[in-house]
Design a protein around this nucleic acid. Structure first.
Ligand SMILES: Nc1ncnc2c1ncn2[C@@H]1O[C@H](COP(=O)(O)OP(=O)(O)OP(=O)(O)O)[C@@H](O)[C@H]1O
Length: 754
DNA sequence: CCGAGAAGTCTTTTT
DNA sequence: GACTTCTCGG
């Protein structure tokens, strides 16, 4: 069941413990067994156990494994993410440092809209000072427990204006009584470090602290784990430095590397047997990761010798890639591998779209993890804004959102006036409405509408307490007129959005049901907390016969018999934004390593030579990571192009057809390849061009694909694509390697060049 | 004040 | 392509 080293770790009870081991060696398994051992054999009360991970998905996974081992008492253990754990503590102890108890949690878009306001108020040019950059910088600062004062003192990375922006940002959050994601951990650390009586409470309660994926913790999380474990010193951390993939988010690999010096009396367990993969997979993974510098050396071996080779499928474009995945997934299903035992990984969420489309057409059931989150949809956010206002009327972001959903005659000017009035007095927008001075310049009608809106919110607040959870959403949307607005939308859109709103209502009902099952009283605030932190509604991942699709990041910690890694191309993996930074390249490599090591039996890797990105065609060469895998582990498949040119030919791309490379892969950094590869857009396959509905010569003789045109600004170019008719004709024109524009004929002053 | 339509821009990854 | 911002007519 467990090997001797695993056993040793599981039976370790008191004192610090470090488990440093490679992929698939049973780290998570040891962690869960240890928790079970403590509860079952050492009389440790379940709520004395605190186990955290990084993502919701990982936390849920661990809870499931635990429930399997110990049954329903698993419910009483704290098995969550850092963020959820801190939120739960803050809901009880935020007041200890004078923070409001009823704060809202700001998500990424709330942060961004707050920041945009700030940039406007500070007269910062959005071009030179992108609001998103500030949001990220502030988040990084909070990851490191740095206040705006610290930044002003020159701690952390320097960024022009950051200290001022940060200070104002904090002020705005305070006015809105909001905490952002970073605050959840940072504030809790502050409280624990400065309020001994609060700290003592948790230090005594949590006799055993465990951190999975410790290599991905940031400084704030390190401080949290440190202070919580101070009394009992039973801190057990588990990780693999080769799987650190969140450095971009503040993860500090030093946390795990210096654990031994932080806790000189720590026990160290190294696990060397991999129980997950075949030697083929492990050898490939090792070959990829060994190029990184400064790794902690680890041994890893498996009893499952041999195994199926890795198949690399090189295809023409992203559509072919999706087609290949569909075909392979079905083939494996026929061999008896259910869809749920296979998984597709990609680097970026955007890649899922084409896959989704192909799977849907083929009737293969699938689930997408992550991606465009349910709670980020416009209509869902609109309704949530009302709910959030009920719980915390000072939430200015929600106020601004709800006030115009549906539009009710309160526009930009009124809001600007209200905003400045509120700012002057340090009030929230909601408060400012009731105390709006006569000289604020808000006219009678607008003033009346504002008052109506505010009293509507007050009315909602009183209704919330008498309504059932499951009734709240339908009450809100009918009372505020949002439902009428949705129903007036074009039919398809109306249906889609209504369906999402109904799903939100269902989520509230589910939450209420769940709470009752746990003998807790459901509250709207409780639901909103959950909604803020649990990004996806995937909690009921039935899994039965459903193909999972996810990013490589989300795949960490999971395993599947058959794995597909798509987009194995320079520019995607490694991602284009990482290629000129050695550190980031190493992280890309680790990401690739994580992907490979999720595989139990069979790994397919796919690369496409052409791919649509931002609406334009991009040419990609195979990933350098493919090159690092020993040839004898790989089987090459050149997938025939399925007559799907993405554009109809034209004045560029003559020369070597892709088929010339049929049997000989070419690699990034391979000179021969770089020089000889010049993409050929299947000149002459005009049949397919018309299949795709390109309006060509017949409809509009003025413009033709391949025709040369001139633009006053961009100069001469070649028409690549024609859409629409007559005065709504849109042309996609290639002006140069990185200058591809889509222009309306009607507006762009294009002239044909003869 | 509001919506439609055009132009411009671009998040890589998650809590 | 999708999303946001900007402009203009009603
Ligand atoms: N002693 C063992 N005997 C049989 N199977 C084992 C043993 N230990 C672990 N396994 C299996 O090996 C697989 C990998 O285990 P686990 O997920 O705990 O590894 P991990 O080290 O956390 O991996 P990673 O770091 O890649 O996420 C699981 O399927 C687990 O059940």
């Amino acid at each position: 069941m467990l090997n001797p080293e695993q056993q040793r770790a599981v039976e370790h009870v008191n004192g610090p413990l470090l488990i440093l081991a490679g992929a698939g060696s049973g780290k998570t398994r040891v962690l869960t067994h240890r928790m079970a051992n403590l509860v079952q054999n050492h009389n440790v009360p379940p709520n004395a156990i605190f186990a955290v991970t990084f993502t919701n998905k990982a936390a849920r996974e661990m809870r499931e494994r635990l429930t399997h081992l110990v049954g329903p008492v698993a419910r009483d253990m704290w098995v969550t993410t850092f963020h959820s754990a801190c939120l739960r503590m803050l809901r009880v102890h935020a007041g200890a440092m004078g923070y409001p108890q009823d704060f809202v949690v700001f998500d990424a878009s709330d942060q961004l809209s707050t920041m945009k306001e700030i940039c406007k108020a500070m007269n910062l040019d959005e071009k030179r000072f992108p609001p998103m950059g500030f949001v990220q910088a502030i988040s990084r600062a909070k990851d490191q427990c740095l206040t705006h004062q610290d930044i002003a003192d020159g701690k952390g990375v320097f960024m022009p204006k950051l200290a001022e922006v940060y200070e104002l940002y904090e002020k705005r959050l305070k006015e809105a009584r909001a905490f952002d994601f970073g605050d959840l951990i940072f504030r809790m650390v502050q409280i624990l470090e400065s309020k001994p009586e609060v700290a003592a409470l948790y230090q005594n309660q949590f006799q055993f602290i465990m951190v999975d994926e410790y290599q991905d913790t940031n400084h704030a999380q390190y401080r949290l784990a440190t202070i919580l474990s101070k009394a009992h010193r039973n801190l057990c951390v588990v990780g693999d430095d080769d799987q650190c993939i969140y450095r971009w988010r503040g993860a500090d690999i030093q946390n795990i590397l210096s654990f031994e010096s932080d806790y000189s009396d720590t026990q160290v367990v190294r696990l060397e047997q991999n129980y997950r993969s075949t030697t083929v997979i492990l050898d490939a993974a090792n070959a990829v990761i060994q190029h990184n510098r400064g790794r902690k050396s680890k041994k890893l071996w498996t009893e499952i010798t041999g195994g199926a080779p890795i198949t690399v499928h090189s295809v023409g474009n992203d559509l072919d890639e999706a087609g290949a995945v569909v075909r392979l997934v079905r083939e494996h299903a026929l061999e008896g591998v259910p869809y749920s035992d296979q998984a597709v990984f990609y680097r970026t969420n955007a890649q899922s779209r084409v896959l989704e489309e192909a799977l849907r057409r083929a009737g293969v059931p699938y689930v997408i993890y992550g991606g465009t989150k349910f709670y980020e949809r416009m209509e869902v956010k609109d309704v949530l804004a009302y709910l959030r206002l009920c719980v915390n009327p000072h939430d200015n972001v929600s106020f601004a959102r709800a006030v115009q959903a549906p539009s009710r005659g309160i526009g930009k000017t009124t809001m600007a006036k209200l905003q400045s009035a509120s700012m002057e007095r340090g009030l929230s927008l909601f408060e400012a409405v009731t105390q709006l001075p006569d000289d604020a310049g808000v006219t009678g009608a607008a003033r009346k509408r504002l008052a109506e809106f505010a009293s509507f919110i007050a009315h909602l607040q009183s209704q919330i307490s008498v309504l059932q959870m499951s009734e709240i959403v339908s009450y809100v949307i009918s009372a505020c007129g949002y439902e009428t607005y949705l129903r007036a939308l074009p039919p398809q859109e109306s249906r889609d959005r209504m369906a999402n709103v109904e799903e939100l209502s269902g989520a509230l009902a589910d939450y209420a049901k769940q709470s009752h099952m746990n003998d807790q009283t459901p509250t709207l605030g409780g639901f909103l907390d959950q909604a803020a932190l649990t990004s996806d509604i995937d909690s009921l991942d039935n899994g039965q016969g459903v193909l999972p699709l996810m990013t490589l990041h989300l795949a960490k910690g999971l395993e599947f018999p058959v794995v597909y890694m798509v987009g194995m191309e320079e520019g995607l993996l490694p991602h284009g934004s990482s290629i000129d930074s050695p550190d980031e390249l190493e992280e890309e490599r680790r990401l690739c390593y994580v992907g490979i090591t999720r595989t139990q039996k069979k790994l397919h890797m796919l690369n496409a030579f052409r791919r649509r990105v931002y609406g334009n065609e991009q040419y990609n060469i195979p990933s350098r990571f493919l090159k690092d895998i020993p040839k004898e582990l790989v089987e090459w498949k050149k997938v025939p192009v399925q007559a799907q040119p993405t554009f109809g030919g034209g004045a560029y791309g003559r020369g070597g057809a892709a088929s010339r490379h049929a049997n000989k892969p070419h690699w990034a950094g391979d000179d021969d390849f770089d020089q000889s590869f010049s993409p050929t857009p299947h000149v002459g396959s005009s049949r397919a061009a018309s299949d795709l509905g390109f309006s060509q010569d017949d409809s509009d003789a003025t413009w033709k694909i391949g025709m040369k045109v001139k633009h006053p600004q961009f100069g001469e170019g070649v028409i690549r694509r024609i859409e629409g008719k007559e005065d709504r004709t849109k042309l996609t024109v290639y002006f140069g390697p990185h200058v591809v524009k889509t222009l309306m004929v009607q507006y762009a002053q294009l002239t044909p060049v003869t």
